[in-house]
């Protein structure tokens, strides 16, 4: 009996060193608090996951259960059946989404980082004004400019093309802002030594700044990917063949209560992709963050 108590006391002594300024009681209270909100956060997503694998009789069971007794792939089978019958081949919707997401993300990262580097590291006429315009533009979002945007797009004959979704996404300032803020921390001495070696500004940007700003542009990729992945095309794309996958799947869900299971399968698929991307890139970000600790 003495052994566990002794061990616990040892642990407490050890805590005094590793958890300086932390009381055990508050630690426990905060962990409980964190766990409770973790549950609140995960529970709805958990419901989506289990509903996707529930047979119909379990979905409409009273009281509803938080687990599946007889997991089935019926919902997915039904989904593929519906998908197989759509008059635009489903692969086309998938292609549309991938095309829009890829172009928009690539454009955001390339144009954004190219503009971020001079604004982060140099002072020149207009740089201050540009930086503050970018900061102010974070304070409102695309919803307030949707109407003029539509008019401008139609004047440029871009409505009902991929570009109507891709180009405004590239112009979003959030990614530029994040990359700019990150690049400020790149030591100026590195840039100067590259300049002495005869690099052009573009060469410095590509060979010095971009490798060092990796966490920043990975973050930009995640954010841009997430917003474009969910894009429905809205009023900007109306030709069925050009519609993205989110739109096609929302049409399937809108058939109502009989498709509760199928719609959970749809939601699970739509959910899995951005989360997988984030899991993959989060470890990447943490890794790069850890190795990029620099003091100027």
């Amino acid at each position: 009996m003495i052994n566990p108590i002794k061990k616990f006391k040892q642990y407490l002594d050890h805590r005094k060193i590793t958890r300086r300024n932390r009381s055990l009681g508050v630690d426990i209270a905060l962990t409980v608090f964190l766990g409770a909100f973790g549950l609140f956060s995960i529970l709805p997503l958990w419901l989506i996951i289990i509903n996707a694998f529930k047979p119909l009789n379990e979905i409409f069971l009273f009281p509803p259960r938080f687990y599946v007794s007889n997991p089935t792939l019926d919902n997915f089978r039904d989904l593929f059946q519906i998908v197989g019958n759509s008059w635009v081949p489903f692969s086309r919707y998938i292609f549309n989404t991938f095309f829009i997401t890829f172009l928009g993300t690539a454009g955001t990262v390339v144009f954004g980082s190219m503009a971020a580097y001079p604004l982060a590291k140099y002072k020149f006429p207009g740089s201050g004004a540009m930086s503050s315009i970018i900061t102010y533009s974070l304070m409102f979002n695309g919803t307030v400019t949707a109407i003029p945007n539509y008019i401008i797009m139609s004047k440029l004959h871009l409505v009902d093309t991929y570009w109507a979704v891709v180009i405004p996404a590239i112009g979003s300032t959030l990614c530029l802002y994040l990359m700019k803020n990150n690049m400020v921390h790149i030591p100026t001495s590195l840039l100067e030594s590259a300049k002495i070696d005869g690099s052009s500004e573009f060469g410095i940007y590509w060979k010095v700044v971009m490798p060092l700003a990796k966490p920043a542009w990975i973050t930009a990729i995640i954010l841009s990917f997430q917003s474009l992945w969910g894009a429905t095309g809205g009023n900007f794309i109306y030709t069925e063949k050009l519609k993205p996958i989110t739109y096609a799947l929302s049409q399937i869900i809108s058939a109502g209560i009989v498709r509760t299971g199928v719609s959970s399968a749809v939601n699970l698929i739509m959910l899995a992709v951005p989360i997988a991307v984030f899991v993959f890139s989060q470890s990447n970000v943490i890794e790069t963050m850890a190795s990029s600790g620099m003091k100027d």
Binding site: F111, M114, A115, F124, T145, P168, G171, T173, S200, Y205
Partner: peptide, 29 residues
């Protein structure tokens, strides 16, 4: 600073056409 302006230019064009001008157009409309 020619190079710096050129590097900002692609983003600036998109930003002006699809964020700055729309805000002004919206106010005028």
């Amino acid at each position: 600073h020619k190079e710096k302006y050129l590097m900002i230019l692609p983003f600036a064009i998109i930003f002006i056409c699809f964020t700055a001008i729309p805000v002004l157009v919206s106010i005028v409309m």
